[in-house]
Nucleic acid binder design. Sequence first.
DNA 1: CAAGATAGTCAAGCATTCTTGACAAGTCAA
DNA 2: TTGACTTGTCAAGAATGCTTGACTATCTTG
Lengths: 164, 164
Amino acid sequence: MTDWHEIETSKREATLQVLFKVARLLNEKAVARVQDRPGGQSFRAAHTALFPHIPPEGIRLTQLAGRLGITKQAVFQLVRDLEGMGVLERLQDPSDGRAKLIAFSSTGRTAIASGLSTLRELEQDMAAGIGQESWQQLRMTLLRLHDHLLDPLKPCQGGHQTSE
Amino acid sequence: MTDWHEIETSKREATLQVLFKVARLLNEKAVARVQDRPGGQSFRAAHTALFPHIPPEGIRLTQLAGRLGITKQAVFQLVRDLEGMGVLERLQDPSDGRAKLIAFSSTGRTAIASGLSTLRELEQDMAAGIGQESWQQLRMTLLRLHDHLLDPLKPCQGGHQTSE
DNA sequence: CAAGATAGTCAAGCATTCTTGACAAGTCAA
DNA sequence: TTGACTTGTCAAGAATGCTTGACTATCTTG
């Protein structure tokens, strides 16, 4: 469900449609740049979906499955693949003989760092393209929108709510 | 490829990451609202991906496949499904005995209109949430970003380029 | 210690969304 | 008119991203 918003409609494009399209274009550009890197692994979407949920200390398979809302067997398959690619590693959990801690390997950390730095480069390009002030102001507006989406109640004009 | 951007990194979230997350949240909300409608068809992503490429006059299967970058056989299956749901119809192309014109049926047009109107409601909610001026200003910034993405050359400060 | 719950693993299967290959009907150029 | 090409169609199969079910090793509780 990524394109149906972009139906050509009236003369004046809706803001939401522009936002969706810009996000899609930026995503495509980011993916292209990251994959053009020398060591650019060819992850698939299901694999990369794990990354945001893997803390430096590692995490258990079952916890990961819970956060992602899928079965532990599904996560197992993804982790097995990513371990085979050298991105993740499974360490014995010292506090529980059954459990293992899934964490980034050192090459995995390098790959992630490289990807994030590519993302920062893209961000600089965009900021330069529309001007630094516009970019900062966009950032502030998006943060307020983000807060409004998570809690559609009071926070109408104030600053960004940093929760966790 | 929708989540790898959102890796928790430094204290200051990057603007790109906020934009991706806001787009994802808005998408989820939009999909939920549209599907909660009384006559809310349960389209899948592959189906809805066709919609933006179907003009009022209709379009040929092969052209549609070319635009989507997939085989005509794949498009055929999707169109067959959507015709079964009563959303699309296939009319004989008067200018070519082999070809058929794929177009929205009248119920399909109604469904699309309903979806777009739900999208407009959501847009109003968001605009009210962060303030009308902020929303308009967000819109302008996104349009300039959009232009910069499509043509990363000169248009640095000016207004939105309305091409087609 | 026995019983039961929990963590990870292995296997098989299923829905989705594409693909390749084959083909009939229609068009068009020689 | 004949041969090459295009359009839509049908069939079969493959890759992806899950699922359910079964099983072992380990922990926990009475």
